[in-house]
C-alpha cells in the first residue's frame, strides 16, 4: 500500500483475512443443491429421482414447472408434473436453474449495500455467454463455464455485504480513477477475484472453476492452452457490452493471445456474439423465474 494514498486505511491483514474467512463460512451452498448435483452426476439416477428431491422444495418446484411451461420451450400441452418438466428441460438446465437460484438465495441480503438485480443480471448473463463460448471453443469441460461465469464476481458481493466500510473506500478510489481490482487490493489486500476463488474452493467445487474465477481478469497467467479463465474473460466482456454496463476493472481487452487460445477470428467472434445475444434473449423468462428484475438505468 502506498503511504501517499489519501484513501489508505492502516493495513490490518489478519483482521481482513478473518473477515473474509467468516464471510466465506457464512455463505454455504444449500445441501439440496449439492444433493441434486450428486444425483444428476449419477448415471443410474433418472428424472423421477431428481423430481423426488426437488418436490421437497415447493418454491423451487414451482420454478421448474414455470420454466418448462415458458415460451422458450414452446409446448402446447401444459407440463403438469415435475418429472415431465425435468425430462423436457434436461438435467443440464435443471442443474443450472437449481444452482443459480441457490446461489442467489445464499447472497440475499436485507441490507441494500449493492444493486442486487444488476449484479445478478450481469452474473447470469456472463454464465450464459460462457456456456456458449465454451461449447463453440470445444472446451473439454463446458459445464464448468456456466458455474464459473455465474460465480466470477461473487467476491464483490462478499466485499459489499461484509466489508461495507472497505467497500466505501474502494468506491472512493474508483471515483479517483483507479480500477476496481487495483482499488480492492489497495484497501483490503485482495481483489474480488481472489475472494470468489476462496469461496468456491470452500464449497468444494472443482479446482478449474476456482482457477477460472481467480484468473478471470488476467487469463494469460493460466497454463498453456485455452483455460476456463479465457472463457470467463471473454464472456465477461461480451456480457458487459451486450447489457451496456461500464467496465469495472480497466480491461485492456481482450487480453493478448485470447483469440488463438480460444480459436476464434473476426468472423467467428462475430458469430459467437450473435449466438450469445440470441441466447440471452431466449433466457428472458429464466431471468424472471429467478426473480431478477433487470431495470434499465433510466428506471433505477
Amino acid at each position: 500500500m502506498s503511504p501517499s494514498s489519501p484513501f489508505a486505511v492502516p493495513p490490518k491483514e489478519s483482521e481482513i483475512d478473518r473477515l473474509i474467512s467468516r464471510a466465506v463460512e457464512l455463505h454455504t451452498l444449500p445441501a439440496a443443491v449439492l444433493e441434486a448435483r450428486r444425483i444428476m452426476d449419477d448415471p443410474r439416477k433418472n428424472a423421477q429421482d431428481v423430481a423426488n428431491l426437488i418436490a421437497g422444495d415447493p418454491a423451487f418446484s414451482a420454478r421448474v414447472l414455470r420454466m418448462a411451461n415458458s415460451a422458450y420451450y414452446g409446448f402446447r400441452r401444459r407440463i403438469g408434473t415435475l418429472s415431465q418438466a425435468i425430462v423436457v428441460l434436461g438435467f443440464q438446465a435443471v442443474r443450472n436453474l437449481l444452482l443459480t437460484a441457490g446461489v442467489i438465495e445464499v447472497f440475499k441480503s436485507s441490507k441494500a449495500t449493492y444493486d442486487h438485480a444488476r449484479f445478478w443480471t450481469h452474473s447470469v448473463a456472463t454464465a450464459i455467454a460462457a456456456q456458449e463460448i465454451a461449447t463453440r471453443a470445444a472446451m473439454p469441460q463446458a459445464q464448468h463455464a456456466y458455474v464459473a461465469g455465474l460465480m466470477h464476481d461473487v467476491g464483490k458481493a462478499i466485499i459489499a455485504q461484509h466489508m461495507p466500510e472497505h467497500a466505501r473506500s474502494i468506491r472512493e478510489l474508483e471515483l479517483a480513477g483507479a480500477g476496481t481490482c487495483e482499488a480492492e487490493r489497495e484497501i483490503i489486500g485482495h481483489d474480488h477475484a481472489d475472494i470468489g476463488g476462496r469461496l468456491v474452493t470452500a464449497w468444494g467445487l472443482p479446482a478449474p472453476i476456482a482457477d477460472a474465477i481467480r484468473e478471470h481478469h488476467q487469463p494469460q497467467k493460466s497454463a498453456s492452452g485455452a483455460s476456463d479463465a479465457d472463457v470467463i474473460h471473454l464472456a465477461d466482456i461480451v456480457a458487459k457490452i451486450l447489457l451496456a454496463e461500464r467496465a469495472a476493472c480497466p480491461l485492456s481487452l481482450p487480453v493478448d493471445g485470447l483469440s488463438s487460445r480460444l480459436g476464434y477470428d473476426e468472423k467467428s467472434l462475430a458469430e459467437w456474439v450473435g449466438a450469445i445475444a440470441a441466447s440471452l434473449e431466449r433466457a428472458a423468462d429464466f431471468f424472471q423465474i429467478l426473480g431478477i428484475w433487470a431495470a434499465t438505468p433510466a428506471e433505477r
Binding site: T121, K240, L242, R246, L253, Q288
Partner: peptide, 30 residues
Amino acid sequence: PGVSRLLARTIPLETIFPAGHGSREAAIIV
C-alpha cells in the same frame, strides 16, 4: 422482460469502456 429491454438498447463503445481501454476485438463485438 427486463433483459429484452436491455438487449434492445443501442450503446456507444466509449460509454462501456473507459477511454483508451477499448480494443479492436471490443469493436468487433459491438
